[in-house]
Nucleic acid binder design. Structure first.
Length: 504
DNA sequence: GTTCTTCCCA
């Protein structure tokens, strides 16, 4: 990728623009074949006026780059450092490995002891006699065993066992629980729906002066179903002097980030308002998160306002901002504006990578503009970005959604040729696509195929195949699929969802 | 015997 080597607005772009804005746009008539000075090319959507009263569904292309151009540093700014001299963790040999093997064995024994606890058997006493060497690793292993085996029958008993063990461990000589260990018990409580116990645990941490972490917050917020409770939690964490929010610069960003991972967009808005009210200044991360939330909530006006405000406050968009902008432009079916933005990014030293292209293509696919998807996919390859599984899957999914299965198939074949392994998402799309063209047998064999390639189908693959077969009146084939699934021992607990199916 | 989440796509 050579910065400054622009994506060509060529014929393809002209064709795309016809879809973008039929009435007025740069390349609409052959006579004005593109004044290509930057200031011209930003006027993709005419003069920045929104189209006739229509709800603007994408980024208003006339706005963003023009204003950004005024504020952004000149080309040749700091390039995005993409150094991934990743950490080389060795899987662990020798003593380290033995340590963990021993821990696992002890954890198994302790778990069995805990299960026997009850009238006539004191787990505490048995643990005292066993005298295991208490360490964080051991406690984590034991509690992990409890977490993964929680079910509807034991969900009342297990949290008590977990806490009993936790208390016992905390009383052992030379050992003290840290935040991380509290978080693990809290995870057990969360898994069992013991919300009150989780709050008590939080109190306990406070009493002991133990710091709480983003993980603590995450567990609690996920278990707090009511809006009021969630807000109370946020307020509490913001005020908490023991809130360890590193590596974030402030507690607000740590909270916002957590809320983003659990898709709590309205809460993000609320926290943001609170943050401003309390006089805390947002940084680029804050803007990126809040803008994403606004976009997800469909509040594009506010999205734009924030983008403007961000620039006014002297913040330069980073690669995350661009990702979001590209997705918005794609979803709003504004390929030309996207093209300009991509070129602009190269100019300012933020060279688009495979993620940027994929984000854009995903948006365009959702907008149904397959022509543009194709154009940017090709450009991505030309720019030296190797398409990965996700890029291919996005293309395949878009073609399938547009009812062009043959094209999807071509991309699927192509990815195999290029050595990209399809995964569950890819297969899911392809199987769905095969169903849409009535190739049910092929769909079923692809389902078996993915298993052979070490790719376990998820339940939604099965369920969508079954319902498509049934909708096509092919009940016996649908039953074959269900039988295949049960023979594999997959998702037996979800079998009832197929309704009416009897295992023979 | 240890920190653990910077935000980005299906």
């Amino acid at each position: 990728m050579i910065p400054g080597a622009h994506l060509p607005p060529l014929r393809a772009a002209r064709a795309l623009s016809a879809r973008l804005c039929p009435s007025r746009h740069l390349y609409s008539d052959g006579s004005r074949n593109g004044g290509e000075s930057p200031s011209d090319t930003v006027h993709i959507n005419g003069d920045g006026v929104r189209e006739g009263g229509e709800e603007v569904t994408g980024l208003d292309a006339g706005r963003f780059p023009r204003e950004m151009l005024l504020r952004l540093p000149p080309p040749g700014g700091p390039p995005e450092s993409d150094d991934d001299d990743g950490e080389n963790f060795s899987p662990g040999h020798g003593p380290r490995r033995r340590f963990f093997e021993d821990v696992r064995l002890e954890a198994d024994r302790i778990f069995r002891i805990l299960l026997q606890d009850g009238p006539g058997f004191s787990a505490r006493q048995a643990l005292d006699e066993m005298r295991p060497k208490v360490s964080n690793a051991l406690i984590r292993e034991v509690l992990f065993r409890i977490v993964v085996s929680v079910d509807s029958v034991n969900r009342e008993r297990y949290p008590k066992l977990a806490y009993k063990f936790f208390v016992w461990a905390g009383q052992q000589e030379g050992y003290r629980h840290n935040t991380s260990m509290y978080n693990v018990v809290m995870k057990v409580f969360a898994e069992c729906g013991e919300v009150k116990a989780m709050w008590r645990l939080l109190e306990e941490m406070a009493e002991k002066g133990l710091p709480v972490s983003a993980r603590t917050f995450h567990l609690l917020i996920c278990s707090s179903g009511k809006v009021g409770l969630r807000r109370r939690l946020v307020e509490r964490f913001i005020k908490l002097s023991t809130f360890r929010y590193r590596p974030f610069r402030n507690a607000f960003n740590a909270i916002l980030h957590t809320l983003l991972t659990i898709e709590q967009y309205s809460l993000i808005e609320w926290v943001h308002e609170k943050m401003i009210l309390e006089g805390h200044l947002p940084d680029i991360l804050t803007y990126n998160i809040v803008m994403r939330a606004k976009y997800m909530l469909g509040k594009l006006d506010q999205f734009h306002r924030l983008l403007d405000e961000m620039g006014q406050n002297g913040f330069t968009p980073d690669l995350h901002t661009y990702n979001l902008l590209l997705h918005v432009l794609g979803k709003g079916d504004k390929p030309l504006a996207a093209l300009n933005l991509l070129n602009y990014m190269s100019d300012v030293g933020c060279v688009p990578n495979v993620l940027h292209f994929t984000n854009l293509i995903d948006g365009l696919g959702r907008a149904g503009n397959l022509e543009a998807c194709r154009y940017f996919f090709d450009e991505m390859v030309k720019k030296g970005c190797e398409p990965d599984v996700v890029s291919y899957t996005v293309m395949i999914t878009s073609y399938v959604a547009a009812g062009e299965f043959e094209e999807a198939q071509r991309f699927f074949d192509d990815m195999l040729v290029r050595g990209q392994l399809p995964n569950v998402y890819t297969y899911n799309s392809m199987i769905g696509g095969l169903c849409t063209v009535g190739e049910f047998d092929k769909a079923f064999s692809m389902l078996k195929d993915m298993e052979l390639h070490g790719c376990t189908p998820n339940f939604s693959v099965y369920s969508s195949l079954v319902s498509r077969l049934r909708n096509a009146g092919k009940d016996s084939q649908a039953n074959n699929v269900i039988k295949y699934m049960t023979d594999k021992g997959h998702y037996l607990h979800l079998l009832s969802r197929f309704g009416g199916y009897k295992r023979c």
